[in-house]
Write a protein that binds this DNA or RNA. Structure first.
Length: 886
RNA sequence: GGGAGCAUAGCUCAGUUGGUUUAGAGCAUCUGCCUUACAAGCAGAGGGUCCGCGGUUCGAACCCGUGUGCUCCCACCA
């Protein structure tokens, strides 16, 4: 027998087994006759490093996929990464800046060269880190959203949707990120509350008779004003409607118009209209046929380009190139200098910021590509129905509300981004701005020939790329080449995937869009179940973030505690859809659990070689074996059902308690032979079987320690990782009930010993007075051992004085050689008696209530009667004990 | 402003058509133990106005109304 270390040492074990599983190819999947169980990983960004959110998400996926594998399904978990256009481009631009290279100094191809270099260097880190966590991904299938086939599939889908009339190009108000100089979809804008100011600016009437005051948070846009708008019912201003005012500084004459959009109770009730810089102003501008005057360029700096009609003054010209925030101060000062600033108030407002760069978003008019979502959904009504009717099941189900609310209020999806890193939009323009959508330039030329009768047109491709989500919405299909090579064997076998595990925060970005694409291109749902994880927070409930520095270094945690302990710690406190309050103490618990398993292993190993083959188990051991077998059966059924319902945290807690309490604290103690005594061969073999089965149940959660123990228990040729679960047998309730009684008796008598200061080494005599003598036949020997009793006798009446107590309806008497102080025992009995009497009273009240007897269901009534009878019997037993004690 | 959800032990949470012993678990706390697998452990114990108020019911942690507090999503009144 090899000497086992004092404690489990994950550092040596983890890598060994991961390598072994890889060498054996257990994680690889190819289509066969078995039922597939497919998970596609939510592809992490190539810029990412593993953090707690990934750990939570991927541990769950690994648990599901390992369980499926052991259930005999063809388990396939596809890894991969997302090119993450904005985030990656920002990283690459930053890296170049550090090297003193400006993006603007590079050609598109040069820049992409750097970007690919960066991706090759850093893009795979996160996948390597998943191996440390034990994730059993099919590495042969690793995909990347910019792989050549994937790239082609994205282009194919764009062209297809364009041909179907679902994609259009238009000049619209978009969310503009002046830092990365690109448009963003509405979902990529995060609103934040900021302290700002409300400026009250006076616009004089052109006829010289007074003026109108407007409240604005953005004086820097004043030079783009084209109207003042008031509510038509606002009596303060009704006489002014139709008149003209003069815009400060630029001196433009603009009309006062009326629209119900304006609320009378905010600011002054007068709103300045700047259609080039605000979504609502733009809407009003379109409604009232006002032109839009843009005064900011793509970087958020002032430009006079569109002000030339106003013959701008020198002052206006001097604003050129000033950044929007400096400009705000400058213009406010200049208006004040003109005496047209009435007052400035503090104001808490919301501003939109870029999810990726954090820059304050500008609403900006620009030419972009959109998907017509209304039309798309009309064509694919299953997008909503499948979720509402549980064809696709959301866990937790409450996420359905969020989903339907979004779909019912959906806006067109802006899919173009003014970036280089990503799939370049396959649109081709001639010098006059006419365009066609085509896969290649040659094809585009032909189309120009056909459509515009222009031969050999001089074409250039659209400079923009597609939104990252326009590629990731194809993920469950294209990882199996379902788009680029439709109907291939893999796609036919693995699609639709089985379960998606992802964060609630990307339900719109990703989940909804995958469902749309799934119906559009496969006419099928992309997955059957969606398990939503919550956010990972620290133990104070704060969101984990780099800024707060409360995000622990996951690899350091794995190094310190071992991957199994980290997985345990994460899973033990994270019900589906709820936020995970991460606390390192739960990792401590995981580590302790590892050691508990390890120590149980050490105990069993000590028996090895001490078991005698011929020896049959004694009665007590027979009971222990039977009891644990049934306990195991019951627990297996329960855990299976919990896991089927995705209640993974509860399933883990059930396994934990089954191992720690039932197996270690009860079963092993019951069958443990005396010091250096031999053990029955039957018990020994059964124990090995039970231990093995427990390791198998735990394996999806804690793969490393369980595999290690599996091999240390007995010499084996197979591996736990791919060992198939056996059928669950039904549990015999009666044996389990006997076991519960046994536990209760042991606990109660232990308590009595402690209360009466009987030292553990001192033996006692135990007498039991019971109406059902048979129930103790099988339990006596275990009781003797556990209670350190020299004898246990079932009697009809007690003839001696001793420590009295009751368990259920049975009375117990403990005789020890020590002089007994019965005060404590009496007190306990009195307390119990009082408790029982009060309980009896409440049951009696219920049964005395005619309405209850008339209305309650028969089984409820029967139960109450049993409660009453039990309580009465117990009270009698206690009273007798008290009498016996004198 | 619109919507969704939550409130049970010090903490994190279970509590499945309202009735299963005057509410359960894990962690933490307290007490006693260096007992022969395990002190990273063992054996015990304490701890709750089930957020407040009102209602329905024979019976409410659970259903209804209302108030309070918190969280998230959507919109973005300049």
């Amino acid at each position: 027998m090899t000497e086992l270390s004092k404690n489990f040492e994950p550092q040596q074990t983890d890598n060994k087994w991961y390598q072994h599983w890889m060498d054996k190819g257990y994680f690889y999947s190819t289509p066969d006759h078995r039922e597939p169980y497919t998970i596609v990983i939510p592809p992490p960004n190539v810029t990412g490093v593993l953090h707690m959110g990934h750990a939570l998400n991927n541990t769950i996926q690994d648990i599901l996929i390992r369980r499926a594998r052991m259930q005999g399904k063809n388990a396939c978990w596809v890894p991969g990464t997302d090119h993450a256009s904005i985030a990656t481009e920002a990283k690459v631009v930053g890296m170049l800046r550090e090297r003193g290279i400006a993006k603007s100094s590079l050609s598109r191809d040069e820049f992409l060269g750097y970007a690919w270099e960066w991706k090759e260097k850093y893009g795979g880190i996160i996948l390597q880190q998943l191996k440390k966590l034990g994730c059993s991904l099919d590495w042969n299938r690793t995909s990347f959203t910019m792989d050549p086939d994937y790239y082609a599939s994205v282009i194919k889908v764009f062209i297809d949707l364009y041909k179907k009339g679902l994609i259009y190009r238009g000049k619209r108000m978009v969310n503009w990120d002046p830092l990365s100089q690109t448009a963003l979809s509405d979902e990529e804008v995060i609103f934040k509350e900021v302290d700002s100011k409300l400026y009250f600016v006076r616009y004089p009437l052109a006829d010289g008779n007074g003026g109108i005051t407007v409240a604005t948070t953005r004086p820097e846009t004043i030079l783009g004003d084209v109207a003042i708008c008031v509510n038509p019912t606002d009596e303060r201003y009704s006489s002014m409607i139709g008149k003209e005012v003069i815009v400060p500084i630029i001196n433009r004459r603009i009309p006062i118009i009326a629209d119900e959009y304006v609320t009378t109770d905010f600011g002054t009730g007068a709103l300045k209209i700047t259609p080039a810089h605000d979504k609502n102003d733009n809407m009003l501008g379109a409604k009232h046929q006002l032109k839009a005057i843009d005064t900011l360029d793509a970087t958020g700096k002032f430009t006079t380009e569109e002000l030339m009609d106003d013959s701008p003054s020198e002052l206006v010209m001097s604003y050129n190139g000033i950044d929007r925030f400096d400009l705000r101060k400058k213009i406010a000062e200049d208006i004040a200098g003109l005496g047209q600033m009435e007052k400035i108030e503090d104001y808490k407002g919301q501003v939109g910021t870029s999810e990726r760069t954090g820059a304050v978003i500008e609403s900006r008019l620009s030419m972009q590509w959109f998907i017509d979502m209304q039309q798309f959904l009309q064509k694919n009504p299953q997008t909503l129905q499948s979720v509402m009717h549980d064809t696709i099941q959301f866990h937790p189900a409450k996420a359905k509300n969020t989903y339907s609310h979004w779909l019912e209020n959906i806006k067109d999806w802006c899919i173009s981004r003014q970036l280089w890193w990503g799939q370049r939009i396959p649109a081709w323009y001639d010098e006059e701005g006419r365009f066609v959508v085509a896969e290649t330039e040659e094809e585009a030329k032909e189309m120009f020939n056909d459509q515009y009768s222009i031969s050999n047109a001089q074409l250039h491709q659209d400079e923009d790329v597609l939104d990252t989500w326009f590629s990731s919405w194809l993920w469950p299909m294209e990882v199996f080449k379902g788009i680029s090579n439709p109907g291939n064997t893999d796609a036919a076998y693995y699609y639709p995937s089985t379960t998606l595990v992802t964060g609630q925060d990307i339900i719109f970005f990703w989940v909804a869009r995958m469902i749309m694409a799934g119906y559009e291109y496969e006419d099928q749902q992309p997955f059957k179940d969606v398990y939503f994880t919550g956010m990972v927070r620290d133990k104070q409930g704060r969101k984990m973030s780099k800024q707060l520095g409360n995000s622990p270094d996951l690899l350091a945690l794995i190094e310190n505690y071992g991957a199994d302990a980290v997985r345990f710690g994460i899973m033990v406190s994270s019900p589906a859809g709820n936020d995970l309050m991460f606390d390192e103490s739960s990792l401590e618990q995981g580590k302790n659990f590892n050691n508990k398993l390890w120590n149980a292993l050490k105990l069993v190993k000590m028996w090895q070689g001490r078991s005698s083959v011929d020896r049959q188990p004694s009665t007590d051991n027979n009971f222990a074996i039977d009891w644990f077998q049934n306990r195991l059966n019951a627990a297996k059924a329960e855990i299976g059902s919990l896991m089927d319902q995705f209640r993974l945290s509860e399933a883990l807690k059930t396994i934990y308690s089954l191992i720690w309490d039932d197996f270690c604290s009860w079963y092993l103690e019951w069958v443990k032979p005396g010091f250096e005594q031999p053990i029955d061969a039957v018990v020994y073999n059964k124990t090995i079987d039970y231990f093995t089965e427990l390791m198998q149940m735990l394996h999806p959660y804690m793969p490393f320690v369980t595999e290690e123990i599996y091999h240390l228990l007995v010499e084996r040729n197979d591996d736990l990782c791919v060992k198939l679960y056996t059928q669950t047998a039904t549990a015999d309730e009666q044996i389990i009930t006997s076991g519960e009684l046994l536990k209760k008796v042991i606990t109660s008598l232990r308590e009595a010993r402690i209360k009466n200061n009987i030292k553990p080494k001192e033996t006692v005599q135990v007498f039991i007075q019971t109406a059902t003598t048979d129930r103790y036949n099988l339990l006596k020997d275990i009781l003797m051992k556990q209670l350190n009793a020299s004898s246990i006798e079932v009697v009809t009446e007690f003839t001696q004085q001793g420590i009295s107590l009751t368990v259920e309806q049975d009375k117990y008497l403990i005789i020890s050689s020590q002089p007994i102080d019965t005060t404590a025992q009496k007190e306990a009995l009195m307390k119990d008696l009082e408790h029982q009497q009060r309980f009896l009273e409440s049951v009696g009240k219920k049964l005395g209530n005619e309405k209850f007897v008339a209305n309650a269901r028969p089984e409820v009534l029967e139960l109450e009667r049993k409660k009453q009878a039990d309580a009465e019997a117990r009270i009698k037993a206690i009273e007798e004990s008290l009498v016996g004690m004198g």
